[in-house]
Write a protein that binds this DNA or RNA. Structure first.
Lengths: 224, 224
DNA sequence: CACTGTGAATGCATTCACAGCG
DNA sequence: CGCTGTGAATGCATTCACAGTG
């Protein structure tokens, strides 16, 4: 059940499949075809079949895929079945709080064990059942809690420093939400995610879809 | 200055170039080579040159690119130069607040004109200089403020409904952060962004990088 | 029949490699 | 020289199209 290499893009879709299958299971749907799955998620049926085929053969000709079995299988493949990942959150601002509050992680075995902050106003607070620790303790806490995944949700200026501390604390994967690239040694997997970019891409597409200037809003005031 | 088609992946990098060029400009760097730029951002030099070449020729052989000129040019291309986009935020929870607070948008001419919420506790509050309106008013507000871009930061269950209201309100692009896919007519550009997926991908990569089970944390307690 | 699983074909994106230029 | 700009080559990802199957 372990082929050599899986396209990155496919891995991204894997959790979407799992999510959709969970919905179908709730609705007591027994079987689902690649076409059906694809329509719900906005892909093509061929795409779905290809993705699944990387991992084996789970379908039945003429019937499709058994929902609950496929779901379990994909959860196994994703590494979130009957298993737990220890996650540390660095930066309990708005974005960090949003992540802490998202219940989807817990359902997928991604458990926040540690949350740290630099702001003394926030240290000591308990959010979602987790008490916020001082930023200085990050390295030590990461070690004692056997943190595997670190999330960076701090201002850009300190992102790299935080990253280094996470690496020193032994984490093996880092997701960085700060608008600045961070680097780590190759044994640590890093993913830089920039939510602002999506908005800027929209500006690009809009400004070329109609060449003309848009309605000038009410009085192009600049700054706040 | 308007070629036919630009790779999506290139557009994504465009704002990263702009950001890096802004840094360089602050540091009074006059010229930068594709190599230099690439190293800072984690791409290859060929990639940078290729990306820029889609839009024209901005470099000088032997010297590289003039930082401030390239920055201006790219901002023009991105559609964020001397121009303003009106943005509406739907959902002023933690994620929504994080987006409101991010100063990068304002610097790029992406201005929040409207913020709406369903939660009556939050309606009427002023956040980042913007007063939160009731969700019911979304359509009307979008129209009167000539909103071009809508951001969805609400629970998955209501995401599609919000999307429909934004469309009815005349927006032309939507960025959806809810963990559920939303659809709109083809004239409206939709981008579904799922921050949770990044974490789940990490679980996948980690679980296959070492086949073994991880340290069992301290007592695999489930749930909070 | 309705559907899967997959070679083969196509379409994107990245990288190579080098001619040409300041 | 050092560096750009770009054809040509390579490498991924998606889609086509269909033989095979319960």
């Amino acid at each position: 059940m372990i082929p050599r290499h899986i396209p990155d893009a496919c891995v991204e879709r894997l959790s979407l499949y799992v999510r959709e299958l969970a919905h179908l299971e709730e609705q007591r749907v027994g079987f689902v075809s690649s076409r059906h799955l694809a329509q719900h998620l906005g892909f093509t049926d061929a795409q779905v079949r290809r993705d699944l085929s990387y991992f084996g053969q789970f379908g039945t000709s003429g019937r499709g895929y058994e929902v609950s079995r496929l779901r379990t299988t994909l959860r196994d493949i994703l590494g979130i079945n009957g298993r737990v990942w220890n996650v540390a959150l660095v930066g309990v601002g708005n974005l960090g709080s949003a992540l802490l509050a998202y219940q989807g992680f817990r359902q997928r075995g991604l458990l926040f064990r540690v949350a740290v902050e630099a702001n003394p106003r926030i240290i000591g607070r308990t959010i979602e059942g987790l008490t916020v620790s001082p930023a200085k303790q990050l390295g030590a806490l990461a070690r004692t809690h056997h943190i595997q995944i670190g999330i960076i949700a701090v201002p850009a200026e300190v992102a790299q420093r935080v990253c280094d501390q996470l690496v020193a604390g032994g984490v093996r994967a880092i997701v960085n939400f700060a608008p600045a690239r961070v680097e780590a040694p190759p044994r640590v997997r890093v993913r830089n995610v920039d939510v602002a970019i999506e908005l800027e891409m929209m500006a690009f597409y809009l400004s070329r879809s109609n060449g003309a200037a848009p309605p000038p809003a009410q009085g192009v005031e600049q700054e706040r």
